[in-house]
Design a protein around this nucleic acid. Structure first.
Lengths: 245, 245
DNA sequence: GCAAACTGAGTGAGGATTCACTCATTGAGT
DNA sequence: ACTCAATGAGTGAATCCTCACTCAGTTTGC
């Protein structure tokens, strides 16, 4: 059924639309564009912002939906169409905001983990000494994930499902984080707060791993409220005592 | 070796093919049943056995190749044909020994982790008290992987790439392992060797996570010889001190 | 010469991505 | 104020490519 095959300018012959869709079904079907209560933060913006907001809004909805769906099904088992459905947009819309399914996971990670890291950069310097900082890191990492089970699952499990993401993108952040912890340990050793006979790097990896392991089992398990907070306290107690000179 | 109890028999693995297979089900006739090398009593290795050995050898060659390729590319990015090529066999041959790509990962896991678990079951009871047992677990887990970087990567990273494998198969072993650690902690608390104010479960998760984290960064990083052994000693020192009453 | 083991080109399911098309908005022209 | 062309976000069915898996045929072992 050729239809109007004069439009072969594209690489591939046009998708043949057999029937001229009913002109009306669309309007009724998806008024999606309009709506969204949205934060009143943008109060001062005038009408022009409507479109702008709507636009930014979609991206956010897609990200939120992606966290949920990825957490439930894993990265590979998740169909882009599922994310689209969960976000209330069309499949194609996702590609207006993200290059690919992988880049979606990528953005998710950057978006959320970026927040965690910058928060940490802001808060840590306020702590007086190495032990306090170490405790703060533990509290932060576990505290921020408490109540965000989906996100926790994405970070601990899903992230590792994309080898490329893991190796190309996450590794640097990951190492930066490890280095930050190692630096705290080294600092503590310099001031005599921590024992000298452990490698800061090894300790950092072990601490990170412990946090990750606790988060993982919490996320995969029943994820009781408060459990992470309790765990954080205990872990910090044991570690600080173990690291004491 | 493994294979003894492939409890989770999976039929349709990857691409679901609905087609009503022929009456003669594969399971029965599968030559795969053909035992593995069972090499050991290979004393009288004469010429005739050359082929024979090659034959039994295949399964093992495939497993070894799979560890390597999975570690390099990840589970999903690995093509079955790559594994076949690395093993020096045809694509189809893999299906004589394994039901599906997933079952290949599955077998890999069972094969290797089975060793760790049984070793543990044999060795742990020989240790006198809880602290010694805890140290033994740490030494074992890290010691087993030292020098087996690919395997380490498969266990720590790749395993999590198959959501199903993770949930259906690994979880039980995983929990059994955690419980074993938790039991040691509880034991130590009962005998007064460990402080009372930490939850054995949380401690177990943290310890496992620490081991996992060390292994992970070691595997993804430069994987220096001896590093894991050193790490094991330090981790044990810190933990035992931290857990002391 | 037969069966078991092996091979590898071919099959087809599946799913990410594309792109021709819709239509609410915008704003220029009258 | 009122067309009406232009715009481009949004849509989703169609496309096309990638593999996991199959099986007809070949080789090897006895």
């Amino acid at each position: 059924m050729s239809e109007s095959s004069l439009s072969l300018r594209r690489r591939r012959a046009g998708r043949g639309r057999e029937e001229p869709r009913s002109p009306q079904d669309r309007a009724a079907g998806r008024p999606a564009a309009r709506e969204r209560p949205e934060n009143g933060a943008r109060a001062t913006n005038r009408q022009g912002s409507d479109k702008r907001r709507r636009l930014g809004d979609k991206r956010d909805r897609i990200l939120k939906a992606a966290v949920k769906v990825f957490a439930r099904n894993g990265f590979h088992a998740t169909r882009v169409s599922e994310v689209a459905k969960a976000a209330g947009v069309a499949d194609g819309t996702i590609y207006l905001y993200f290059e690919s399914k992988e880049e979606l996971l990528f953005s998710l990670f950057e978006d959320r983990v970026g927040k965690l890291l910058s928060f940490m950069r802001d808060e840590l310097p306020k702590k007086p000494d190495a032990p306090a900082r170490l405790r703060a890191i533990i509290d932060m990492q576990l505290g921020l994930l408490e109540g965000e089970r989906d996100l926790a699952e994405v970070i601990t499990v899903i992230l590792r499902q994309s080898t490329r993401l893991m190796k190309e993108f996450a590794a640097p952040h990951f190492n930066a984080y490890l280095d930050a912890i190692a630096k705290i340990i080294a600092e503590g050793q310099a001031t005599g707060a921590f024992r000298q006979d452990v490698s800061p790097h090894i300790a950092a990896r072990a601490i990170f791993g412990a946090l990750d392991g606790i988060t993982l089992t919490w996320a995969l398990g029943r994820a009781e409220q408060g459990a992470l907070g309790r765990a954080a306290g205990q872990l910090a107690d044991v570690l600080l005592r173990g690291l004491a000179p």
